[in-house]
């Protein structure tokens, strides 16, 4: 199950997000890391230092692209310039799969630069799946859609979030980037059982898993990626691994970023769960 058609039949281990404060450490110390996830938009540029750094990283590590502004769920067509630049980058990185979020964020050519939640309707599922297919056909690589953290639900929704996710990925025939931290955050904000979510996703479509930390406020939880992973999220991760097997896992840490080793050590905590999955498969 870990290597499947949604992650380019790869069998990646534990990765971390490539972030600017760690460039120097990575390029000089060359730490052993299974793979790095890069934010596509940071490198969809014409030249300069970011691309030079990326090329150096590509020469030494496995890299997977993760996007934040494709907005599969936006009702209007994808931006052609965005797609053209994304394809150029895909050809540069040779990413085995590409992920972006199951959300929307732009309308009438204006961008919010946020991951806004979807209304869980059949119309939204149809439009989103159509766009995933179009992007995949244009880029010619497997696509995985990621569940987002959300702070609002819509009156018009006709199904649960996991039912919507399943509807989209079945219609698009695409993969899932399962973010267990996002499931936890949304479960707290919308009062559902996160294990029901994890137990409901089609395991065979999971291309990758995200883990991360978040911030708890008085009335809601915000997905801030600025803390270590908390125990309830590790428990969800354990259940996800139990269901989907040894799957490429990535720790996101995007704000108040600590030293490289601290981030990497946090990510490597996933290894005991992955080892159990490997053992279970072997037995």
């Amino acid at each position: 199950m870990p290597a499947n058609r949604f992650n380019g039949h790869t069998d990646y281990g534990i990765g971390i997000g490539l972030r600017v404060p760690h460039y120097q450490h990575i390029l000089t110390r060359k730490p052993v890391v299974d793979w790095f996830e890069v934010i596509s938009e940071n490198f969809m540029i014409d030249g300069g230092r970011p691309l030079r750094i990326l090329d150096e990283i590509l020469g030494q590590y496995k890299v997977v692209q993760h996007g934040v502004s494709m907005y599969f769920g936006s009702a209007q067509r994808a931006d052609r310039e965005h797609l053209r630049r994304l394809k150029t980058l895909v050809q540069r990185t040779k990413t085995p799969w590409l992920s972006d979020h199951l959300c929307w964020g732009s309308v009438d050519g204006r961008y919010t630069h946020d991951l806004l939640p979807m209304p869980y309707t059949f119309e939204a599922a149809r439009i989103t799946a159509q766009k995933v297919r179009e992007v995949r056909d244009f880029l010619e690589i497997p696509i995985a859609v990621e569940n987002v953290s959300s702070y609002a639900e819509f009156h018009v929704s006709k199904m649960t979030e996991w039912e919507f996710l399943n509807e989209v990925v079945e219609r698009a025939d695409c993969g899932i980037l399962l973010d267990v931290n996002n499931i936890y955050v949304s479960s707290q904000n919308h009062s559902f059982d996160p294990f029901t979510y994890v137990n409901s996703i089609p395991a065979e479509r999971v291309a990758q898993i995200h883990i991360a930390g978040h911030s708890k406020y008085r009335k809601y939880i915000l997905d801030t990626h600025d803390h270590p992973v908390i125990d309830p999220v590790w428990k969800l991760y354990a259940r996800a691994i139990e269901r989907v097997g040894h799957t490429a896992t990535l720790l996101e840490w995007d704000d108040s970023i600590p030293a490289f080793d601290e981030v990497h050590d946090e990510a490597l905590k996933a290894s005991c769960f992955l080892s159990s999955a490997s053992l279970a498969t072997a037995v």
Partner: peptide
């Protein structure tokens, strides 16, 4: 008209987060 409230937050407060 578009956002559901929950036990802790009104529709307006949920929109306000975004």
């Amino acid at each position: 008209s578009i956002i559901k409230p929950n036990d802790c937050l009104t529709s307006f407060e949920r929109m306000e987060i975004y």
